[in-house]
Write a protein that binds this DNA or RNA. Structure first.
Lengths: 222, 222
DNA sequence: GCAAAAGTGTTGACAATACACCCATGC
DNA sequence: GCATGGGTGTATTGTCAACACTTTTGC
């Protein structure tokens, strides 16, 4: 950061940071990149970067993600804006934190850029040491996801188009970190009327499971 | 706004806007100031201003409020960050919107500064034409307040230190815009155990009313 | 026939709602 | 004594949690 330029407009710079979350192998995971140099060398960080002039924050989040992780779509929403001037020793940077949900992390080929020495998925329950206040941001993202799953269809963004009732339930169990009764879960999901069966079944060495899809693609509150 | 300077750091400027809310005469009111010149002349606006370098957004919100309205304390929380580059025709300004709650608007002597030609309280149900996206910000503030009153002690910030059960209920009725049954309300508030009676009574030409206070001054979730 | 996951109802506890009358005071 | 707001209990309904067995398939 160039501090003199900041002084000229007497204001902080603005960045976007995006907590990417996905379910994989019965765990909620988030995507981190390892910083290659500077005061935070070898620390893991939530992917982020400066917003450009006349750029909508959501667009900036996607641009930065595509550049630094090779991920370029998913359900995106704003989380909170962190503005403590001491959060980054390199200068006063205000960060608009976002949450991005994707359905299947194994579909993505991760790629990052030179400044970062590594990129990878981490269980939110076993996070490495992170730079800045990124642990706080990840925890906030997890909390938002937990809360919003009780009254909206946000879980749809963590699932493929077609899924079984059990797969849907596992998403809830993993994010909420607790077991759910199968019958109560099915009753509740049927009552709120957000998923519908499709004429397909998942097969395996067991009884075929009815596949479902969400009634609407957009986020619905119930 | 000086566009050249922005180009140098290739980023937007950052402002804070604060929706001040209070209850008065059985209405939820918000504080607006009337813009004196420029493209938004004679439009009403939520008080706001640019954040300074190395300034925490919350501090900036209070500084700007004190300067432009003469209000300098209350319960403050962040609402949302609005970043659409087109929201202000004068330049790319990202605004961190806040909500400030105060207990008794009649205690404040409003004062504004030269750039504004008027200042006043408006019922959130009868808003004038506002500049920018300020109508949206006020509606979001109202929604946040409504929602948060169902599971927290945030209503305490709209009341004086001591209050009657009826006064507390009126705050809920005004913000929620619906009547509440007196007995059910008292049972619920007693169950969640957030207020305690004090050894004082409110007198009038009727039976004296027990005064209560909130158990804790800080915001508690139940 | 057995392993593995799918699918299905009932009961009890608690929370939210609906509803009406008497009480204490000032004037 | 009457006007004004203060204060109280019960019955009903709806929602959430606890709980176990049968079904269908592949091998």
């Amino acid at each position: 950061m160039n501090k003199e330029l900041h002084e000229l407009i007497k204001g902080p710079a603005v960045a976007v940071d995006t907590v990417v979350m996905a379910i994989n192998k019965d765990e909620l995971k988030t995507l981190l990149i390892k910083i290659g140099s500077g005061p935070y060398k070898d620390k893991w960080a939530v992917p982020g970067g400066l917003i450009q002039l006349n750029e909508i924050p959501e667009k900036a989040a996607i641009r930065v993600l595509k550049n630094k992780t090779n991920i370029q779509r998913g359900h995106l929403e704003q989380l909170y804006t962190f503005g403590d001037p001491d959060r980054d020793v390199r200068g006063n940077i205000i960060s608009i934190a976002h949450l991005l949900l994707i359905p299947d992390l194994e579909k993505y080929i991760l790629k990052t850029v030179d400044f970062y020495t590594d990129i990878g998925w981490f269980s939110v329950n076993k996070l490495p040491v992170t730079a800045f206040d990124h642990n706080k941001i990840i925890n906030l993202a997890h909390k938002r996801l937990k809360d919003k799953m009780t009254y909206s269809t946000i879980a749809s963004s963590l699932l493929p188009k077609y899924f079984t009732f059990t797969e849907l339930q596992r998403v809830y169990e993993i994010v909420w970190r607790r077991r759910i009764d199968k019958r109560n879960f099915r009753k509740r999901m049927t009552d709120v009327d957000i998923i519908i069966p499709v004429n397909k079944f998942k097969k395996g060495s067991f009884r075929p499971a009815q596949l479902y899809k969400f009634k609407e693609n957009r986020l619905v509150y119930f």
